[in-house]
Amino acid sequence: MNELLRIENLHASIGGKEILKGVNLVINEGEVHAIMGPNGAGKSTLSAVLTGNPAYEVTAGEVYLRGENLLTMEPEVRARAGVFLSFQYPVEIPGVSMTNFMRTALNAKRAYEGKEPLSAKEFLGLMREKKKMLELPDKLNNRSVNEGFSGGEKKKNEIFQMAMLEPCLAILDETDSGLDIDALRIVAEGVNRLKTPQNASIVITHYQRLLDYIVPDFVHVLADGKIVKTGDKTLALELEEKGYEGLQG
């Protein structure tokens, strides 16, 4: 199995406060890893650091994507190399249409891969195809990015973008939060359909619920900035039953 991501002794802080205190994790192609843990454990910090959010500072450790040093890459280069974050709180961008945004993003990735940009016709065809999968309305094209979208639409829109960009590593940060059961099913089905033997995903969640739909190969418990326990999907059920308290340290 080919290694996709390797995190070694990762330490990170925000505003001088250390949040990640030595995270180690290896993800191979084809795997789904769930990261669970109490609030404040560092789950969202991990996704922010992996994607290069400038608000966070890496103070120690290494991260490799297919053997390449991820931490020295600009955020946009990480994205083009295939790291995708489904944001916990997708950002509204008034005045920038979904079409313009998505075409700019997709063509930037294609240029990075040495491919020609898509024609307008090819691009719109692709948009239509992927939107259908997420049951998103057609009118979305002309709307500004996430502006006025409901909570469920925003999360579907994240997975739609993921479908367009076909990342090798998708990080789903609390994708289930704020979703009703129908939206959750659609989002999860979308994620499952995008799974291939070559890509992998990290599913960050506080609750077991999402993992009924997206079945992980591994479940890790992140507590106080470290992975304190790793197991298979039964660990998630155990956590649901017993809570996080007994697992720390």
Binding site: E74, E76, A79, F101
Partner: peptide, 10 residues
């Protein structure tokens, strides 16, 4: 940052 995360340069 959201746009950069989608591959759009700053």
């Amino acid at each position: 940052f959201y746009m950069q995360q989608r591959g759009i340069d700053k």
